[in-house]
Structures are given as C-alpha cells and as structure tokens.
Deep mutational scan, measured.
Amino acid sequence: MQRVNMIMAESPGLITICLLGYLLSAECTVFLDHENANKILNRPKRYNSGKLEEFVQGNLERECMEEKCSFEEAREVFENTERTTEFWKQYVDGDQCESNPCLNGGSCKDDINSYECWCPFGFEGKNCELDVTCNIKNGRCEQFCKNSADNKVVCSCTEGYRLAENQKSCEPAVPFPCGRVSVSQTSKLTRAETVFPDVDYVNSTEAETILDNITQSTQSFNDFTRVVGGEDAKPGQFPWQVVLNGKVDAFCGGSIVNEKWIVTAAHCVETGVKITVVAGEHNIEETEHTEQKRNVIRIIPHHNYNAAINKYNHDIALLELDEPLVLNSYVTPICIADKEYTNIFLKFGSGYVSGWGRVFHKGRSALVLQYLRVPLVDRATCLRSTKFTIYNNMFCAGFHEGGRDSCQGDSGGPHVTEVEGTSFLTGIISWGEECAMKGKYGIYTKVSRYVNWIKEKTKLT
C-alpha cells in the first residue's frame, strides 16, 4: 500500500490518463441519441435557420407576430419608411378606419389613436360632414345658397324668414311668412316636400332668348283662358290664391305678392273693366268669414305684352289694390325667389296649380277651390304637342294621358313649387288646347323671366 501511494504521488498524470480511459469505455446513459432527441424537440425550422439574422431580410411573422416588435424591426421587413409607417399605425392600436367614419364618399386613412378623412370636392370637416359648395344638395341650405369668396357655403332665406341657429334652416321672422300653410287642420295635408338634388348652379339658368321682337298675326285659340281631375282644397291650404270678379264672377285667378299687390295673367284683364279681388276665398257660393274683398285701382301688364300681336306672350300683369290686405292664416303671400332659384325650383319637376275653373272641358265651374299636382314636361315634348308657338318664356306641365289639367277660369292662378315646406311661385296658368285632352298640356308663363320686374313694381313704400 505504501508503494502504491508513492507511485500516485510521483505520477499524477498517469492516474488522470487511467481515469479518462475508464470513462470513455463506459456506456453513456444520461444523453439520448440524435434521433430520439429530435422526437422530443420537434420544432419547425425557421426561415433563416442556421444563418445569422443580421444578414437576412426581415420576416413579418418572425419579427412582429411571434413577439412584439419595434418600429426598427418592422422597418427591416418593409425596407421602406412609408410602408412601415402605414403598417405601424394599425399594428400599434388597430384600424381606426374600420367603422368607416368618413361621410359623403370620403376616404379614410388610419393613424395612431386617430384617423384622417380625405374629402371629395365640396366637403370638409373631420368626417367630411361639412358642405362647402352650393353645387351639392344646395349646400344643405333649406332655401338659398351662395358661395363666399373663400368658396364656403353661405345660406340665406327669402323675405319674412331668418336663418336658424344651425345656419342652414329657415324659420319665420314674421307672423305670416310667405308660402307657408298655417291653418292647423290643413298642415297635415301639406304636399310632399321637395329635397334639393345635386345641381350645376353655374349652368342652372337656361341660355334662352326671349323672342321679344317676333311679330306674329293673332292666333285663334280655343278655350285658351284655361282644375280638371283635381281635388277639393281645404280652407287655408292655398292662402296665396285669390279669385278675380268682373263682368262675371271667378273669371280668373291670381296670387298675393304682398298686402297691396296681386300677380295674374295679362290676358285676364281689360282696361276700363272694374275688377274686384277676393282673398281668403274657399267656396265661392258661401260666406265663410275668411274672405277679404278689395278693388283694383291700377293694372300693370308687362311692358312687352301686346294682345294685338299675341294674347299669351309675356302673359303676366300686376294688380294694385285700393287697401292693403290683412295677412292671416287664410290670406298669405306666395314666396318669389330670384331668377336663378325660381328656375331651379321649376326644374324640380312638379308643381301645384289651383283655381275655381271648370271641372271638365266646357263644363261647370268649381264651387270649392280645386288643386292638382302636375309634372313638368320637357321642352321637346311640349313643342311636338301643339302647332302653336311655345315661346321661351312659357313652359308645359300636365299629363300625356289627359284627364287632369287646369281649365277655363283658372287662368292667372299660381303654379307653385314647394321647397322644404315653403311654396314659391314658378308659373302662372296661361293657356292650353281644350282641357285635359290626351297628348295636350297646360301652358304656363315662366315666372323666372319676370321676377325682377315683379319685385321692382310691387315694392311697398
């Protein structure tokens, strides 16, 4: 034993070699072989497995989906700052455009905790909710729209109204504003409101030439003092309507412009014939205590009207009353817009006519005020429907199939267009061939041609 100890002390290297040989010859039971080890760690190889990531292109799944990435790591994937920024906006807080917040056709661009709407022409605001041009839906104005110097929408209202708090709607500024039905039992019968379409306001006024200088022999019209197929109006439903009495009662109609003036057809009036105007009328054979009678003290036909040349060209006249009318729910003026808007309103496509005229061709006159909704007829169809001249200051309205029309005794009465609950004068009943005849239409004086003249002559002093 002493000898062994001496050998170990003198030859430590020998001992180490012996131990190493023993270990190498022993069977290893701690580690699995290569094949079995792979069965336990069965993990798919990654895209760049075996390579240094710093030297390969980034992978979106590896960089940002398996674990949260930084902007720089995302930049490695896209290799483009702009594309990385677009991805980053949604990656950080989701897609803010998912709810489609942009209105009126706006395009949404996502941002971090926010979004941006790219608005089409005519709109602005956070969600493109603000109209900035009158060309689109009248700028959301209830009545009139004008573009300011910086191309912003400025709404306005006709006389007797003021802008509401929203700067879009119009509200009454006087007790009985024009064009409004205020009798409670008839307010439910107000005709369907007309909503502004998209309009090209630059070209809204037709490029028409008034044929002022045409000389033409007097034409022989049949029954051209021209509501057939209409309905009984309720008291106060058309408070701007008046009836004219002269040699015979209810020979023509008219509309209240203001307390002192009536507008009617020029062919209705004769110099030297006494005319009485009755406002607030409903049943011409009954006294309903809503009527107001006034005498006409002055007749002003349009300066281009000449019955000797043509009885229905420039067929418009103004009547001055001896005493002002007292405005109330049964006696209310009709609204008159400017030339541009009167023309736009007419193009809405349908209007209402009213009167006490004959209820059928050569038949009896109506006792109760009649009204009828009539569609506008395109000019080409209008011209083809008659052998008589249709001037540019006239328009056609009615039904091709016949059966409904204005008729004798309705002449001078109103053709009105309702705009968001307020009625505007767009025409004056003038003439036609018979009444409600198939293929024939009622012919009306186009008020847009005469609004400046009306307003100039009827100013209240």
Rank of each mutant, 00 (worst) to 15 (best):
K260H: 06
Y91K: 15
V331T: 06
G246M: 05
G13Y: 12
D200L: 10
E129W: 00
R226L: 06
L319V: 07
G122S: 04
W118V: 15
K51H: 15
G21N: 08
M394Y: 04
P301M: 12
E76L: 15
L130E: 14
E129G: 04
F71Y: 07
K45D: 14
G409W: 07
S182R: 10
G229V: 08
E420A: 14
W356S: 03
E27A: 08
L460C: 12
A233Y: 08
N147T: 14
I316H: 01
D405C: 10
I309Q: 13
Y161Q: 02
K109A: 06
G105D: 04
G439K: 10
F71E: 15
M8I: 13
Y450A: 01
I428Y: 05
D200K: 12
N328R: 01
D249A: 09
R384S: 09
V263Y: 00
V359F: 13
N295T: 10
G409M: 13
E10T: 09
F55I: 12
A436F: 08
R162V: 10
S350A: 12
E165G: 10
G21E: 04
K457C: 09
V257K: 02
G402S: 14
G253K: 08
W453Q: 00
I390H: 12
H314S: 04
N306Y: 05
G413F: 04
G272Q: 07
S255G: 05
H400C: 06
E61N: 15
F121I: 06
C117P: 01
Q408A: 05
R62V: 04
G254C: 01
G253P: 07
G13P: 09
E340V: 10
C155K: 01
S49A: 06
S423G: 13
T16V: 10
F196E: 10
W356P: 04
G229R: 13
T458G: 03
I336C: 02
K362G: 13
D223N: 10
E285H: 12
Y330G: 04
L346D: 02
K39V: 06
V263G: 00
Q370P: 03
Y441E: 00
R62H: 04
D405W: 08
G58D: 14
K39Y: 05
H282R: 08
C157F: 01
A164Q: 07
P301Q: 11
Y91L: 15
H267T: 05
E72A: 15
I136Q: 08
L24F: 10
E72K: 15
G106I: 00
T417F: 02
I344R: 12
N42V: 13
S406Q: 14
D200E: 09
N5G: 14
T264A: 05
N310D: 09
G21K: 03
E259L: 04
Y341N: 11
T290I: 06
L367K: 14
C335S: 01
L321Y: 01
E10W: 14
Y312L: 08
G160T: 09
E53S: 08
T386D: 04
H415P: 00
Y450K: 02
E98S: 11
T85I: 06
H34M: 10
W453A: 00
F31Q: 15
R43L: 09
G50I: 15
L41E: 11
E208C: 06
G412N: 04
V77W: 06
N166I: 01
I454A: 01
V296H: 00
V257I: 05
E116M: 09
E124G: 05
A266H: 02
S49H: 12
G398V: 04
S99Y: 04
L383R: 14
S99I: 05
D198T: 08
C145Q: 01
V174Y: 05
R140P: 04
V199N: 12
E76K: 15
S114K: 07
E401D: 14
C134S: 02
K51P: 15
E208S: 12
K45W: 09
I210M: 09
L23Y: 07
Q90I: 13
T461M: 11
N304E: 11
N393G: 14
L244H: 02
D410F: 10
G403V: 15
C117K: 01
E286Y: 09
P177L: 00
A307I: 09
T16L: 14
V419G: 01
R62M: 04
V368M: 12
S411T: 13
F121D: 13
K387Q: 14
V257W: 02
G230R: 10
T332N: 04
Y115A: 01
E165W: 07
L383N: 09
C268R: 00
V447P: 03
S329D: 14
R62Q: 04
H400S: 14
R449L: 10
V263I: 09
E420R: 11
A266N: 02
F238C: 04
E259S: 09
G409P: 10
C28M: 04
P324Q: 05
W431L: 08
L19R: 02
K247P: 11
E116K: 07
T389V: 10
E159Y: 07
A279E: 00
R373T: 08
I344M: 12
K45T: 08
I262N: 02
R226M: 12
N59T: 13
V377M: 06
C145F: 00
V273S: 09
V447E: 00
I336H: 01
D232K: 10
P44R: 04
N104K: 02
S148D: 09
N113F: 04
R46V: 13
E171V: 09
L327H: 03
N127M: 06
Y441I: 11
I210A: 12
A279Y: 00
N283F: 10
C97Q: 01
Q96W: 06
E27I: 02
T445H: 05
G122F: 03
V199H: 11
